[in-house]
């Protein structure tokens, strides 16, 4: 990874789906520069041939019985929804006319 590169904040904030104000962008730009520089020490370690660790004690093939269990009613499932109608979440239109 070598020398840390400047991050394109607008691009990455869009990937993360977070709207930032201009002040936030300015503030983060400096901070990310420092943080990424700090992370650069990672480039000095030799990880050739080392297996990555995703979980400390990985478990594979965790099976469960295919049994019906009681779940939420529509009312319970929608209780926290910001907008709802006819047992459904209301969202802005996603298909262009």
């Amino acid at each position: 990874m070598g020398e840390s590169q400047e991050m394109d904040i607008g691009y990455v904030a869009n990937l993360a789906r977070i709207e930032l104000s201009e002040e936030e962008k300015e503030k983060f730009r400096g901070q990310f520069g420092d943080i990424l520089k700090y992370f650069d020490r990672l480039s000095e370690v030799d990880v050739e041939g080392v297996e990555p660790t995703a979980h400390a004690f990985p478990r594979h093939n965790v099976w469960d019985q295919d049994e019906a269990r009681p779940g939420f009613s529509a009312e319970e499932a929608l209780a926290n929804a910001p907008a709802q109608r006819l047992d459904q979440v209301v969202v802005p239109k996603v298909i262009e006319e």
Binding site: M1, L15, I18, F28, F32, S43, V45, V50, E51, P52
Partner: peptide, 24 residues
């Protein structure tokens, strides 16, 4: 945002994967 960057195309190997190996 930092996490999205570490996972983004072109940086995944250098940051996230490398960090997982160092975790080992």
């Amino acid at each position: 945002i930092l996490g999205a960057y570490a996972l983004s195309s072109g940086y995944y190997d250098a940051y996230y994967l490398r960090a997982q190996k160092a975790r080992t």
